[in-house]
Design a protein around this nucleic acid. Sequence first.
DNA 1: GTCTATACACTGATAGAC
DNA 2: GTCTATCAGTGTATAGAC
Lengths: 192, 192
Amino acid sequence: MSKSSNENSARERVLDVAEQLFASRGYAAVTLKDIAKQLGIKQASLYYHVPGGKEDLFVEVMLRHLERRRQGLEQIIAAGSLELEDCLTRVGVWLLSQPPLNASRIVSTDLPEIAPEKARQIERAMRHCFFTPMERFFARYQDRLRGDAGFIAGRFLSSVEALSLVKRYSPKTDEQLLAETIDLLLHGALKS
Amino acid sequence: MSKSSNENSARERVLDVAEQLFASRGYAAVTLKDIAKQLGIKQASLYYHVPGGKEDLFVEVMLRHLERRRQGLEQIIAAGSLELEDCLTRVGVWLLSQPPLNASRIVSTDLPEIAPEKARQIERAMRHCFFTPMERFFARYQDRLRGDAGFIAGRFLSSVEALSLVKRYSPKTDEQLLAETIDLLLHGALKS
DNA sequence: GTCTATACACTGATAGAC
DNA sequence: GTCTATCAGTGTATAGAC
C-alpha cells in the first residue's frame, strides 16, 4: 500500500465519526463542530484531514460506506449456502451489524443539499453497491419467485432497513425481527 | 365554527406550504425564508401567522397532517368492503394521494432537532393516527394471518411509504407498484 | 397582514502561529 | 496536526412603521 496504516488511521477516525453522525441525524443537521467535538479537536482542525470541507467529507463518507457494503454483500452472496432463506438471513444479519444506511432519507433529503454532480455520484454508487448486488442475487432464484427480482430485492432491503425503526418499539431481538421479516417476504402474510 | 373560513385560509396556506417543504426536504434543511418565498411574503411576516416560530410551525404541520391521516384511514377502513385485498388497495391508493409522510426520517432525523416534549407529542400522534388504525384493521383478519397484526401493519405502511422512492427508478404506474406491493405482502415472493 | 431594520447566534471556511 | 482568530454568510427571532 502507498500509505502506512498509521498515516491512514487519523483520517479514518474522522470518517468514522462523520459516518456515525451523518447516518443518525442527516447531512443538514450535523455541523462540523459536532464532528470535531466528538473527535476531541476544534472545528478548524478538520480541514487538515478533509480540505474539501463538509460537502466533500459527506461524499467520501458515503462512498466509503457503500463500497464496504458492496464488498460485504458480494462476499456473503458468493460464499453463501445455496439455500435462499439461509443466505438471506446471513445477508440480513450482516446488514444489521453495519451502520444504518437510511437510503430513503439520503436520496430524498440529504442529496438535494449538496452539489448535483456529487449527488449523482452517490446515487450511482448506491445502485451499484447496494441495490444491484441484491438484485443479481435474487435473479439467481428467479424460477422460484413470483414477480420481478429487482422489485423483491428492493422490498428486502427496505424491509431490513426499516428494522432500525421497528426496534424502537418492539421488545423482540434483532434475530427474531429479521426472521419474521424474511419469512413474511418469502411466504406472505396470509395462511395458505 | 368560531372562525370564518376566510380567517383560516391564510394560515392554512402557510401550513400547506410548510407541510410540502418539510415533507420533501426535512426539518433542518427547510428555512423560514424558503417557506416565505414560496408564499410570496417576507420571512418575518410568517410570525404573524405562527407566533411560535419554526419549531411550533413544524409541530402544527405534523399534527394536522397526522390527524388528517387518521380520519382518512378510519373512514376507509370503516366503509371498506370486507375483502382484505380490496380494502388494502383502497387504503394504499389514498395514502399515495397524500403528501408523503416519511415516518422513518421524521422519527430518526427530524424529531431529534426539536424540543423533546414536542418530539414526544408528535411521536405519540404518529402511533395514534398512523400505526394503530392499521394495526386494528389487520387485527380483524387475525385468524387468516400468519404472524402478528402489528408487525404486518408496520410492514404494509413502510412498504407503501417506500414506493415514493421506488417510483424514481421504476417506469411502472403507482397502481401497478401498489398492486405488486400488496400481492407480495399477502402471498410472499415464493411460488407456492 | 406585510414590510424594513436589526439583533444575535451559528456555520463553514481561511490564514497563520505553534 | 492542532490551535486561535477572524470573516462572510445565513438563520431565527423581535420591534416597530405602514
